[in-house]
Amino acid sequence: MHLWHNGNKAPYKNTENAIERWIATVHAVGISGNSGNIEIFAPYGLEDIFTKTIRPIYHVDNNRILYENKVARWQERFSNLKIIEWSDEIKNL
């Protein structure tokens, strides 16, 4: 994924690190394993999936433009989404 951005992003350390740096919590879920043992990695939980909540993940590789563009595309495809607006007040980048 970091290569899609002209090398402007730091490489991911592992799959979990990549998932933690996605645009929104609703998609920050990884599932691995087999029929006898399934593992779920959901650093922001699963509630947003079930409530159709689109919530930004604040990190150095995400920004308002990326988030709002992604939200607009999701709104074209899916109904009844609860959108959490990007906040410039968050300073933990």
Rank of each mutant, 00 (worst) to 15 (best):
F41H: 09
E39M: 10
I31R: 04
Y58P: 02
A42M: 05
A42I: 05
A28V: 04
D88V: 08
W74G: 02
P56F: 04
D61G: 15
N6R: 12
A24H: 03
N62T: 08
K70R: 12
A18S: 14
N62P: 04
R73F: 03
N17I: 04
L46N: 09
E89M: 11
L66R: 14
R64Y: 09
V71F: 03
A72G: 07
L3W: 08
W4R: 13
I31K: 05
V71P: 02
V71L: 07
Y67Q: 03
W74N: 01
D61M: 11
I23G: 00
S32K: 13
I84M: 11
T53Y: 00
T51M: 05
F41S: 07
N92C: 13
P43N: 06
V60F: 11
T15M: 14
Y58F: 09
N63R: 04
N80F: 11
E16K: 13
I65K: 15
I49G: 02
G30I: 00
R64T: 10
P11T: 08
N14M: 06
K91V: 11
V29K: 01
D88M: 09
E16W: 06
H5W: 15
N92Q: 13
N14H: 07
T51H: 02
A42V: 03
G45F: 02
R64A: 14
N37R: 11
N69T: 15
L3P: 03
K70T: 11
L93W: 12
N8M: 13
K82I: 12
S87V: 07
T15E: 13
V29G: 03
D48I: 00
I83E: 04
I40G: 06
P43T: 06
A28F: 01
I38C: 06
P56T: 01
I90K: 11
V29I: 15
A28E: 00
W86F: 05
N69C: 12
Y44G: 04
A24C: 13
H59M: 05
I49N: 04
A72I: 00
I31N: 06
W22E: 08
R55Q: 09
E85F: 01
N37T: 06
P43H: 05
W4L: 15
Y58K: 05
W22L: 14
T15A: 13
E47M: 08
E89L: 13
L66V: 08
H2Q: 09
N14A: 07
V71H: 04
V60N: 13
W74I: 05
P56L: 03
L93A: 08
E20H: 06
E85Q: 15
